[in-house]
Design a binder for these strands. Structure first.
Lengths: 216, 216
DNA sequence: GTCTATAGGATGATAGAC
DNA sequence: GTCTATCATCCTATAGAC
């Protein structure tokens, strides 16, 4: 029985370590030696558990990124259940809050945003997974919810662009933290994160309502 | 004299090729062999002209990215001179237009956004250059201009967050084109780019004005 | 499942001829 | 300035002992 236990633990440690390093440096900048030595296991273990390095990268998405996206969605829904949204503002705030003040640690959120941004900027083998299982469900869910609350319907095109804009801000404020900290001098403590949620909410809210006014 | 001419041409070809490949794949995913063979020159020429691969990367920023950022700034100013901004909307539109419909080709704009995003997400040796010579001048210029036009002043903090949000959208719509094309089904033709500028303008404009209302 | 040892190949960099 | 040839080092992946 102990070999099974060890198996799971080693495999998990590799996945955790690999995710951190892939997010930080990118696939090609990380060697299997770096991963295994950081995970405290043998050089050959990646090939044993995952076949090859490419497949390890895919498994990081299947076993870590997708479940986390799922957790984010659940957190988003919980926030909405606690305080049923009556205005677009409630919805945007719930979304920003789920990502920035939700169940993720600062490192986890940044890692998630980095991996997502990498895939969005330069699609790799994991692109299909990201689009089909993270982006599309999010956009459909969120879009439908938003439409149902808006005082008057928004065209599919404008809705998509607005959702992309909100997503862009949330991801950007998460993954570009080095520049933002550098230029504003603010570190990502609770106060600043709360300010970020406020900002995104107000900025996006008026953005969306502006779209409606213009479309009248 | 011909050796000097050849020098410049080869060096330039290497810089052009390297920029495209670094932007597309990232520093570590590109080998000097790949660059030199794509540039049609000898393997040793990178070390001869730039010393080593690291320094070639820096030179790509010094000789290509920074000048392009400068061109963008000039284009932005020209647009403002032709139509002096009277409202925040004019300013946001001029900014979005300079980047999305300005002097850059689609490939050039995407390349620029990719390189900037890479540096913002994972700072490298070129980070200082990007922050000091691209980000800071832009934020200061643009922030001052925006303040001077706003009906009532915005706090430094809110101003910065708004500028980062606009920047996030412009960069995102440029560098994440694979996902956006994939999901919306729209290719980046003139019509769609014009829609993007409109969208960013309206979205950001109401975002900024929303900030003022809230601050009253 | 984990280890060592090693194969087989790609990489960045340099020396030296032209 | 450009080339060829080459070195030392790194890489991924595998074979085989335990």
């Amino acid at each position: 029985m102990s070999h099974v236990e060890n198996d799971v633990i080693t495999k998990d440690r590799i996945l955790d370590t690999a995710e951190v390093l892939f997010a930080e440096k990118g696939f090609h900048a990380v060697s299997v030696r770096e991963i295994t030595s950081a995970a405290g296991c043998n050089l050959a273990s990646i090939n044993y558990h995952f076949g090859n390095k490419d497949n390890l990268y895919l498994e990081v998405f299947r076993a870590r990124v997708l479940p986390r996206a799922h957790r984010l969605r659940m957190s988003f829904r919980q926030i909405l259940e606690k305080k049923p949204p009556r205005t677009p503002a409630d919805l945007v705030e719930a979304m920003a809050r789920a990502f920035i003040q939700g169940p993720l640690t600062d490192e986890e959120r940044r890692r998630h945003a980095q991996l997502m941004s990498k895939e969005m900027g330069k699609p790799s083998e994991a692109f299909e997974l990201v689009v089909e299982q993270v982006m599309k469900p999010f956009l459909l869910d969120y879009g439908r919810l938003l439409q149902s609350i808006l005082p008057r319907p928004l065209s599919e095109e404008r809705l998509m662009l607005s959702l992309f804009s909100i997503l862009a801000m949330v991801l950007h404020f998460s993954f570009a933290s080095p520049v933002i900290t550098r230029i504003t001098g603010r570190s990502y403590n609770d106060e600043f994160k709360s300010q970020l949620v406020d900002h995104i909410t107000r900025f996006s809210l008026h953005g969306i309502e502006g779209q409606i006014e213009e479309a009248r």
